[in-house]
Design a protein around this nucleic acid. Structure first.
Lengths: 134, 134
DNA sequence: CGTGGACCTTAAAGTTGCTTTAAAGTCAAC
DNA sequence: GTTGACTTTAAAGCAACTTTAAGGTCCACG
């Protein structure tokens, strides 16, 4: 039986996040002591750790809910898990591609100015101001 | 003199965004007709386009405000512009690196399951449940 | 017994950059 | 004069939390 402070320490995440996860429905309502304090068992901490790992992998709260539901029903086919993971991979790859395109444009801009002139000669601001610039 | 609908069309951005930018202080309060309608001149549309381009490059609203302030004071040295751009490049590269690390981990996970078994044999959920898994 | 400090609780607001909604006023044409 | 397309505002919604404020609880020390 752990207090929320202990749970937070063990899961290495803020107490406020644990409360939030409960509110958001990815953790079940915690058991309460007579004083209203939350108490956690080893099981609860494992579930919290599961959530944390899934979040680290970039899954949304909604997807984490789905993953937990699947984990709770061991007889179901795991196709749904694979699908969630595939979607997540695609989403990450898309974000990478967008950021790389951005990086290229920003790097080009960096070459437009050497930092030695006043702003009105700055190639960077010129590019931002210019309707024709990429 | 353009209505907000015209301005939105010319800048290819929603009207709600124009109003938001005004509220957020990156666009000055628009001139108003007797009826309270906003009216825009070519200048205003250019400023809006500047904002749009900077946003496309990933600059925060706060940075866009800074960039505009710099653009409005042509005699200042453009070092500040370069600094903002450098920071932006660093931030984008960092995000890319994080996403690539994520991609690697997700791709590993994908190999942990071929989608043919029930959930309780799923390597993906096992990895999420396992305290020792990456 | 009391008091100080460390713990816990909740609801609500703040964050970022918008979008959406609702309720309402305006304008032009038929 | 009324339809329909425009405009306005304030406020709420989104994601995933974090922060704040105001308030109970617990325990140990004197």
């Amino acid at each position: 039986m752990f207090t929320i402070a202990e749970a937070a320490r063990r899961a290495a995440c803020p107490q406020s996040t644990i409360r939030y996860y409960e509110r958001a429905g990815v953790l079940p309502p915690a058991r309460r002591g007579d004083n209203g304090y939350r108490y956690f068992e080893a099981d609860d901490i494992e579930r919290l750790a599961f959530v944390n790992r899934a979040r680290e992998l970039g899954f949304s709260i909604a997807s984490v809910r789905d993953l937990l539901r699947l984990a709770d029903h061991p007889q179901q086919p795991c196709e749904a898990v694979d699908t969630l993971l595939d979607e997540q991979v695609r989403s990450v790859r898309q974000r990478i591609a967008k950021l790389q395109a951005l990086e290229t444009r920003l790097a080009h801009l960096q070459r437009a100015c050497d930092g030695e002139h006043p702003v009105h000669e700055c190639g960077i601001l010129a590019a931002l101001s210019d309707t024709d610039a990429a």
